[in-house]
């Protein structure tokens, strides 16, 4: 086990983006607002989450509660940036990718769903979600 920690196997690298996308650290408060924003973060359209004030949360995707204990920072960053690198069939949009898309609307062409800073903000917020949803 110690040996594994000292030199992580190749898949562990593939499972995460350990380097932040920006020099300035993410802001969890801004991140929370983005997650709840149905025009920007879009998260609650598919994911339920610990947002007692938000009605009409989706149930297509895992509960965001506990995301910060299920995954580490690098793993969450990859899942936001381009989760299709892990599962090509995933319905999770790639939030920081502009290549390989089909018929993108003119207003969105060449633009990522979120900016690099916004990804870091959302990430900072998700890392605060340590507790799993009550079952």
């Amino acid at each position: 086990m110690l040996l594994l920690l000292a030199s992580p196997p190749a898949w562990a690298q593939d499972d995460a983006i350990s380097t932040p996308l920006t020099a300035s650290p993410g802001d969890a408060t801004r991140g929370r607002a983005l997650v709840a924003d149905r025009q920007r973060g879009l998260c609650l359209l598919c994911h339920p989450g610990p947002f007692p004030e938000e009605r009409f949360q989706g149930n297509l995707a895992p509960d965001l509660a506990g995301a910060g204990s299920r995954w580490n920072e690098g793993q969450l960053r990859l899942r936001l940036v381009d989760s299709k690198r892990l599962n090509p069939d995933s319905i999770m949009p790639s939030y920081y990718r502009t290549e390989g898309l089909n018929r993108v609307g003119p207003a969105f062409r060449g633009r990522t769903v979120l900016s690099a800073q916004e990804i870091e903000d959302v990430l900072a917020y998700l890392l605060t979600l340590r507790e799993e949803a009550p079952r």
Binding site: F56, Q57, L60, P93, N102, R103, G105
Partner: peptide
């Protein structure tokens, strides 16, 4: 298709009956 990269089938076949918002 689109920036969100979703097909009709992914929602209306694979996830029909679930809730989008």
């Amino acid at each position: 298709r689109g920036q969100l990269d979703l097909s009709c089938a992914q929602c209306h076949d694979d996830n029909a009956g679930r809730r989008l918002a």
